[in-house]
């Protein structure tokens, strides 16, 4: 067992699960999507991205690309949230909530691809 592999798998899965936790629930109801969950998802996604740096293989490149997509989507969601609350001061209306959650939904898709890649890579390894 390789500790580096454990950490790598752990963060990729955690990024996907936290993302899923934020995403799940009625898309327009702000009380079902907590800001802490979004924060945790962003932090773990960033760590997962950093862990993927420096792998020159083809599969490593796709891994990095999916993570970057997820980061971009989640940060866009966070900015939308911040702008709505602080700049426009409209608060979390159903429309704003829906756009934040759908952005995180895109990130979730990228994270799922990442998990699939991880599983595929594991299965391809010869015993």
């Amino acid at each position: 067992m390789n500790l580096e592999k454990v950490v790598f798998g752990f963060f990729i899965l955690l990024a996907a699960t936290l993302n899923f936790g934020f995403f799940i629930g009625d898309i327009a109801r702000p009380e079902l999507h907590h800001v802490y969950e979004l924060f945790a998802a962003i932090v773990v996604n960033l760590i997962a991205t950093t862990l993927k740096f420096g792998d020159r293989t083809q599969i490593g490149a796709i891994h990095l690309a999916t993570s970057l997509v997820a980061d971009l989507q989640l940060i866009a969601a966070a900015i939308t949230w911040g702008v709505a609350v602080h700049v426009m001061q409209v608060g979390m209306t159903p429309e704003i909530t829906a756009s934040v959650v759908s952005l995180s939904g895109g990130a979730l898709f990228a994270n799922v691809v990442s998990v699939i890649l991880l599983i595929a890579e594991t299965l391809m390894m010869r015993r």
Partner: peptide, 9 residues
């Protein structure tokens, strides 16, 4: 590039 990224992880 990869070398720098890997060391900066």
């Amino acid at each position: 590039l990869f070398l720098v990224l890997r060391r900066m992880r």
